[in-house]
């Protein structure tokens, strides 16, 4: 029995993988990144809001000899994202950042503090996520802000991050994904390796795949002014066929964009979202809203 839906066995030390924890009915417990620290050591980066839930779930299903340790409260993660992320961070670390490929990582000093540096992120830009001990939380932050002055570095909160991830159509746990959502309907079938052998949630997912997928997560933009928000209903004509799970005003496109679930039988028809009592036509978008600029190093063709 395996723990995650993706094939962590394919990871080499120094590689990261996007993956899922699934429950007994195939719903998503959490979406996570898996870091292979060494042949026999892995780190899971989970959604902060799910730490307690994940731990409960992991402990109640744990059936391996490996030891599980919760380092959440002592670990800081900072994400340095954008086209200047590499030259900026390079000023603070002896690591050869140029040789870290997309979804790769190294362990090195950042601003004199032992850190894990991965070329990952949730913005669609090139960039890094760094992990280090909370005792140094402030010191590293301040050094980065200082070094970032000449690069125009700005601190950015969840609102800004939400527009970035939505422009890339990255799903957000608690909005687009939850315990009752399967990866198949969320468009995350690519991280579910049904043929790798058994894993938690694997059986129900195989069954659901065979039965057919009742609804799908789509991305859409608005044909006229308005901003879609979570929970707004989606219609095909007068028939409710789904609902919005994420929405925002895209600063890049200057229009309303969103994601939501729509019944599989209604994916091709004309759709509208009801925005405060008014139905506004939505157009399905199948490519990212904005071109991704993550740095897919030639070597990344071998990463999962």
């Amino acid at each position: 029995m395996n723990l995650t839906t993706n094939d962590a066995g394919r990871l080499l030390p120094g590689q990261v993988q996007y993956s899922l924890l699934c429950n007994e009915s195939g719903g998503i417990v959490d979406d996570i990144t898996v870091y292979r620290l060494a042949a026999d050591r892995f780190m899971l980066c989970v959604n902060a809001a799910n730490i307690e839930k994940d731990l409960r779930w992991l402990k109640s299903h744990w059936q391996w000899e490996a030891k599980l340790q919760d380092l959440s409260s002592e670990t800081v993660q900072l994400a340095i994202q954008g086209p200047s992320a590499e030259p900026l961070l390079q000023r603070l670390t002896p690591a050869q950042l140029g040789s870290i490929s997309y979804y790769g990582f190294v362990v090195e000093q950042v601003a004199g503090v032992q850190s894990l540096i991965s070329r990952t992120g949730y913005t669609g830009e090139d960039g890094f996520e760094i992990y280090y001990h909370r005792d140094h939380a402030r010191q590293v932050w301040e050094k980065i802000m200082e070094a970032g002055k000449s690069f125009g570095l700005k601190p950015c909160g969840l609102g800004a991050r939400d527009t970035l991830r939505l422009e890339m159509q990255y799903a957000l746990y608690g909005h687009d994904l939850d315990d009752s959502t399967t990866p198949l309907e969320a468009g995350l079938g690519w991280v579910v390796k049904l043929d790798k052998g058994n894993f938690l949630g694997g059986e129900p997912l195989r069954r659901r795949k065979a039965e057919g997928i009742p609804r799908k997560l789509i991305a859409f933009e608005l044909g006229e002014r308005g901003v879609p928000r979570s929970h707004y209903p989606i219609f095909s004509g007068d028939r409710p066929v789904g609902h919005v799970t994420s929405g925002t005003f895209s600063p890049c496109l200057q229009k309303g964009i969103g994601m939501g679930y729509v019944d599989s039988g209604d994916l091709t028809g004309e759709l509208s979202a009801e925005i405060r009592g008014k139905k506004i036509r939505i157009q399905r978008v199948t490519t990212t809203f904005w071109p991704s600029r993550v740095k897919k190093h030639p070597r990344s063709s071998t990463t999962p």
Partner: peptide, 9 residues
């Protein structure tokens, strides 16, 4: 009326 920002309405 209504005022809408990126964050909320």
């Amino acid at each position: 009326g209504v005022v809408e920002s990126v964050k909320t309405v």
